[in-house]
Write a protein that binds this DNA or RNA. Structure first.
Lengths: 235, 235
DNA sequence: TCAAAAGTGTTGGCTGTACACCCATGG
DNA sequence: CCATGGGTGTACAGCCAACACTTTTGA
């Protein structure tokens, strides 16, 4: 069933950049492409926007189809539309990103993907000029991923900004939260400073439960109810 | 010359949200629409992306065609793609924004516009529910404009971030710069604090010239050469 | 001489960062 | 008893915000 327009139109696609923790590493969800172009290369989950489909819904649909992940709240990263970024022709992609905690991060390959898997960022060829012969990421997804990581870092650095990220499960220990911050920001954080920040400003509050494990049990916390911090600004 | 595709495609458009100073007000560049839909309504300059045209180039082209403004460096705001935002059918718009100083802000209506003019934001109906009968902005441009203003505010609030905005001409007085900040942020700023910030951190430096006027002459400044401030972060 | 804009310092509070030791548990 | 991770306080530096008066010029 062909569709005809008076003027040429770029294709419109969406891609999803989903981060999670993978051990102590920041990882991203990629699929192995089943078809051309870039067959066999790893790529961000994504695909074509359907008729009268909202962009974020399209991203959620493609993510579910290709990886089985559902119920994800996105933020928009940016649109990428350089001619030449897709060998099939002019394609504009709107990229969404988010972070989900590991418990929610169970995936499986869908119909359009040969494989779906989490990749620690430090194992991916994200340089501007990846070494020849290496299986680089499909399309311009290395560049997109680099930008997404920067945006994620900015969002965690700014405590006044609300985010829809699921950094941790509903109940969590402060060490777990700190691991997320360290993985995203890429450097160690002082434990006392970290805890003082979140406790002192009432961002998290303890719940009546502890996490037991091999060692000393850890207090569990949750986000403070409004989870919304106003920031006064007069000058 | 019709163009046929196997699957339906949304239209792809770009819009440009250009801010400047208008007296002591923050103003935005709008065009009065010549054709349907929203004929006679004010809208952001913009239009359809052409074959194999980069998004930012398309925005610059449409801006030049409709208002005569050229040489503008954009930042990307976001993509808007809700079905129903354009009565002609599913349309995805990628919006770019920037700020230019008043000297660069000379405009004239181009072919596709009945009129092009700067509108102080406080004169525009930007509420979610504009009063009935009022000539509201075309499409979802009121919402876009609101988001663009917030982003512009965020950018000025964060001194560690580099921007491509032309807030002031090459040489400027600190009062002129302060007027821009006050207009964008929407509140008065203390003069001593403002000057201490820019001078104390070496963001601006005096040049050997003064601006004369009706009153006491003012020292002229320019941005410090690299205009780039690193921000150390260890913890 | 007056109106209007330019210019100038100090203080307190908050936030970020550096830094070292004891505690509870399971093995 | 020891290895492992949980948990705690203080001190300095930088930035933001509050605050009032003098200077220079043209009219």
């Amino acid at each position: 069933m062909p569709h005809t327009y008076e003027y040429p139109r770029p294709s419109v696609t969406v891609d999803a950049c989903i981060f999670t923790m993978h051990g102590d590493d920041l990882a991203v969800l990629l699929i192995k492409r089943k078809g051309q172009p870039f067959k066999g290369h790893w790529a961000l989950p994504g695909g074509f926007v359907e008729k009268n489909e909202a962009l974020e819904k399209a991203a959620a649909r493609e993510l579910a189809e290709e990886t089985g992940l559902t119920g994800v709240a996105f933020e928009q990263l940016a649109a990428f539309g350089d001619p030449g970024r897709d060998p099939r022709g002019h394609t504009v992609s709107i990229v969404f990103f988010t972070f989900i905690h590991a418990e929610a991060a169970i995936v499986h390959a869908g119909d359009d993907a040969a494989e779906a898997a989490w990749h620690p960022l430090r194992t991916l060829p994200l340089d501007a000029a990846p070494r020849a012969g290496a299986h680089r990421l499909a399309f311009d997804h290395a560049r997109i991923l680099t930008l997404a990581r920067h945006r994620l870092q900015e969002r965690l650095r700014d405590p006044s900004r609300e985010s829809s990220f699921q950094l941790v499960p509903q109940h969590f220990t402060l060490t777990e939260l700190q691991r997320v911050y360290e993985a995203v920001l890429g450097h160690a954080i002082d434990k006392r400073n970290f805890r003082a920040r979140f406790l002192g400003r009432g961002i998290v509050e303890p719940v009546a439960a502890q996490r037991t494990g091999k060692h000393r049990p850890a207090q569990l916390y949750r986000w403070t109810v409004p989870k919304r911090r106003a920031r006064a600004r007069a000058n």
